Simulated scan of single mutants.
Amino acid sequence: MIGLAAGMDMADMAWEVRCREEDMKQRALDNERNAIDDARRSVDEKAEQLKVLANQSTLFAGFSMVVLVESNIRTDVNGILLSFFGGATACVIALMLVSSLNATYMLVAILRYDCVNRDVPFDEFWRKRCEPDWKLALRAFSYGVPLFMVVVSLVAWVTFWGNGAYYTASSIVTVISLGVTIFWFSGIERKWSGFLLSPRARILTRGLSQDGAPNSGVCSGGNEVKK
């Protein structure tokens, strides 16, 4: 009886060891799957951001090219005004092309990232290879938007040149463009530029407030803005 009990104890121990080994193997497989899924989610997230930036930059560059080519410019327009118009339009096209091409090349690069083997972690890959180009593309887009509004203002002056309501129509367009530019710098660009350029930017979710509503904050450049 003693020998039988000892044999059963050894069998139980062997079964527990086997179960533990299988459980560790399963956990290792689950961790590997989770790591692959995390890498793919990171790639998809960055890919969507780059697609949006590239598409918007291309739209602005196309609009500026249309303005430059299709504008009904009179032959007696002031030469200095015409030079400012052409230069501003060319700068918008150049900035938006820099933004679009950078975003496109980065998109191709991250889509080639091996999410299975992960020889280099994706965060490190993005930080070392893509982060400077991402900041350059985003800054080029941020500078190109207000410059595009300058083009809109100038095209009114060169188009309405010599007409009866020349000063009135051109001034109205200029005032609207100036208002949009001020709103861009004081509102949109000021709020989101630092957040989007920060490599640590993330959404922080806090606990519920006293009234039961979720209390969240946005981390921008390491600074938390609570709501």
Rank of each mutant, 00 (worst) to 15 (best):
V17R: 02
T181H: 03
R41Y: 11
P121M: 04
L50I: 05
S83D: 15
S171P: 12
M65C: 04
F141R: 10
E32F: 08
W134C: 07
W126S: 09
R118S: 15
V155F: 03
Y166F: 15
G62Y: 04
I188N: 10
S186A: 12
A137Q: 02
S83W: 14
L101S: 12
Y105N: 05
S57A: 12
A103I: 04
S153I: 05
G187C: 06
A103V: 03
S216Y: 15
L136Y: 01
L97I: 12
Y166Q: 11
I176K: 00
D119M: 09
N72L: 02
S209M: 14
R40I: 11
L29C: 09
L81A: 02
P214K: 00
D30K: 13
Y113M: 10
T89D: 13
K191E: 01
E70Q: 02
L97P: 00
F183V: 12
S171I: 13
S170P: 00
R18W: 04
G179S: 06
D44G: 00
L154T: 01
V52N: 05
G79R: 12
I203G: 02
F185A: 11
N102W: 10
F195R: 07
A140S: 13
V218H: 13
E45P: 00
M1I: 11
E124C: 11
Q56M: 11
S186D: 08
V173F: 10
M149S: 14
A14V: 00
N78K: 09
V152Q: 05
N215H: 12
F122L: 14
F141C: 07
E16V: 15
V17K: 11
I176T: 02
L147T: 10
L95Y: 02
I93K: 03
K135I: 14
N102P: 00
A201R: 09
S171K: 03
C130Y: 08
G187M: 04
R27Q: 10
L82Q: 11
L53C: 12
I182P: 01
F185D: 14
V150H: 01
R206W: 05
L95R: 01
Y143S: 02
A213Q: 09
M106N: 03
S57W: 03
A35M: 04
K191V: 10
R118W: 11
I73S: 15
A165Y: 13
L138A: 08
L68R: 00
A54N: 05
V77Q: 04
R190C: 06
A47F: 07
L178H: 00
E224G: 00
G217T: 03
E224F: 13
A35R: 15
I110W: 06
V69K: 07
V43R: 05
F84S: 13
N163D: 14
F141M: 15
D23L: 11
K135Q: 14
G217K: 02
A54V: 08
A169G: 01
A140F: 04
A11F: 01
L53V: 08
N223L: 04
A213N: 02
S57E: 09
D12P: 01
R139L: 13
Y105W: 07
N55C: 10
D37E: 14
A35H: 04
S171A: 14
T89F: 03
L147R: 08
R139D: 09
L107N: 07
K135N: 07
F148R: 12
D114L: 02
R206D: 10
